[in-house]
């Protein structure tokens, strides 16, 4: 039996869910894969300890979000892409929402984006989100408020997504 078997099993069962989170955070498949792989390298280093008395999934998720924020803080040269946005293509409403939300998420700060993903997709409480981000609950509240306000400002066409009672309640 390999000493990494436990880690392999953990990755096998959780990697796709983690990859989805990484993809939502970065908005780019290659970056998401890089992000997750670099975090899993940290996890494998800590595996012995984590598998005994830790919560590998919570640790990995926390590392994923923090690594993402840390990557975005680092100045990285941005190369203009030759791929320009699609134009003049008709989409159904759900597809349109997806496209607009993707673009709008790109306009958020890394922390705001992380808050949106953790609160509204992962369905974490304010306290759980604060624990992952390593900040106060009050900061999560304000980041959520600012993130939603920014989404409304940059993408008014998403009003129907952002004005549902549950969202408004959370933003209060």
């Amino acid at each position: 039996m390999d000493r990494h078997d436990g880690f392999r099993e953990f990755v096998l069962t959780r990697q796709q869910a983690l990859m989805r989170t990484a993809y939502l955070l970065t908005g780019d498949a290659h970056l998401a894969e890089d992000l997750l792989q670099s975090v899993l390298m940290k996890v494998v280093r800590q595996w012995h300890k984590l598998s005994k008395d830790g919560n590998p999934e919570a640790y990995t998720r926390k590392a994923l979000v923090n690594q993402y924020i840390s990557w975005k803080r680092r100045p990285r040269p941005e190369v203009p892409s030759s791929d320009l946005p699609e134009r003049d293509v008709s989409h159904d409403d759900a597809t349109l929402d997806r496209i607009v939300l993707r673009q709008a998420l790109d306009r958020l700060t890394p922390k705001q984006r992380a808050v949106i993903v953790l609160r509204f997709r992962e369905d974490l409480s304010e306290a759980q989100t604060a624990e992952i981000l390593g900040c106060a609950v009050g900061t999560v509240k304000s980041q959520t408020h600012h993130a939603l306000a920014r989404l409304r400002a940059v993408a008014p066409e998403l009003a129907h997504l952002l004005s549902e009672p549950e969202i408004v309640e959370v933003a209060r």
Partner: peptide, 20 residues
């Protein structure tokens, strides 16, 4: 919520990986 549905739709675009 529809926001969560849309976030899930975006997450569905994540390619399958095998990173262990």
């Amino acid at each position: 919520t529809r926001l969560r549905e849309t976030l899930n739709d975006i997450a569905d675009e994540a390619p399958p990986v095998n990173l262990a």
